[in-house]
Design a protein around this nucleic acid. Sequence first.
RNA 1: GCAGGUGUAGCUCAGUUGGUUAGAGCGCUGGUCUGUGGAACCAGAGGUCGGUGGUUCAAGUCCACCCACCUGUACCA
Length: 515
Amino acid sequence: MTDKPAKSNKPQKLKARLPRGLADRGPAEIAATRDMVEKIRLQFERYGFEPVETPAIEYTDALGKFLPDQDRPNEGVFSFQDDDEQWLSLRYDLTAPLARYVAERIGTEHITLPYRSYRFGWVFRNEKPGPGRFRQFMQFDADTVGAPTIAADAEMCMLAADTMEVLGIPRGSYVVKVNNRKVLDGLMEGIGIGGEENAKRRLMVLRAIDKLDRLGVTGVRQLLGSGRWDGGEPGKGDFTAGALLSDEQIGLVLRQLTPADDEPLLGVSGEIWYPDGDTNKPGWDLRNTGLDELQQIESLVATAGYTRDRIRIDQSVVRGLEYYTGPVYEVELTFEISDEKGRPVRFGSVGGGGRYDGLVSRFRGEPTPATGFSIGVSRLQAALTALGKIASKPAPGPVVVTVFDRDRIADYQRMVTNLRNAGIRAELYLGNPKNFGNQMKYADRRGSPCAVIQGGDEKAKGEVQIKDLILGAEIAGLSKERDDYLKKQAEAQFAVKEGELVEAVRKLLARHGIA
RNA sequence: GCAGGUGUAGCUCAGUUGGUUAGAGCGCUGGUCUGUGGAACCAGAGGUCGGUGGUUCAAGUCCACCCACCUGUACCA
């Protein structure tokens, strides 16, 4: 009857697992994040921004244009219904919630325009995760609301560049790319795809342009025209439909990026490229306004001393968000990043932003200009970690006071208390004290700088032993020059009077540069 | 979503043309070891072979479907 009773009777173990795109974070990562956030915060405050926080949850309609789809309520954003059936969503960026915050307060004494504020926190996107792409990640964001001047945009670019450098990314290893949506919008109107009926097509054109750095002129040309096979040749891989522009239209779009196919990409070189020719097309005014604004930004940042290796006009920058109405910026790391197997990894942009003149005014009758910039803290941290620029080593552990004599736990605990009262991280060994070697092993794994030991012999002399575990580790690794070895050995463990314990530990920590 | 690839212990991987009870290294736990961590030796725990179904006397191995992960691509308000 029962062939394999043992198997079926075994209780099914619950599998411990984490949903994809989410990450647990240990002490080293937390320390790195805290460090980055603090550096960014100081820089943002230096620019005159003040802190403001909003919750992680908003009414769905406050975040974007759409209510969740009946079939796919969580497409892109995590959404759910409140008790009263109203739709709520987890925020997917910090800009839209700020727009809501400001719109609620304009005209009160709580806000003085132009209003400058910053915030950081977790944001959520329900998308396919990848390297540097998470479903929960941290952003650090600054916005200026109520300033129509292009100087506000130029300042965001400078802030972006400065912040990269305070984070330890050297000049030349990052670049802030700037473009203007007005250029692209005017251009598209000019080639005859303006108007509501062409909205979808314009989106395809923007997406195609955005892929210039990845797919090159050839790929963009295919996407603007009949479409592209992702295997590289017809029939290979998956087919991406194109925007079906005519050759003439494609030519005009590409000419905004480069004078001719085999010419260098003038539009992304930092120059502002005004293709000449027909200047009477509808939309050309808008395009030229955009180009003039770019010229102003270029001039503002150059006068402030920001060279083109830091902030550069790049007319292929699009940014995904549809609410951008003017200048857009994107921060990229310019070095190659490889994963642990040596394969190159694309991390995408580590920051971005732009002008969103419509986002606050959605809540109000009157127009309210605004511009902002966000750093993708999580992605930047992932990139820096992949580069080995962030120490994966956790901070030093606490001093461990070992238990030699079980009957004297109270004495040991008092030593711990004394150390703690002196501001030194310390703990009593709480495991089974039977095997003293295990206590050392424990202290070692905790990353303790030193262990405190008091056995019967020391107690009789009114002393304690302090064992320097960091030095000890060095000795164990060294080739044994006898004299040197003995000298270090003596340094690595020494006795002090009971009353001098705190001072001796403090000195030892100082010697190793531990606060 | 689409295309391709990969799934064997916590990790890195072996596992023959289908053939007994699925292995190694590292890691982990305990011991040698109530006077000292990173060494050595000994012992032990840990696997629904990603899942389900099928072919077969017999499946980790062959077939189908599903799932997860990786890469590319698409989407990303």
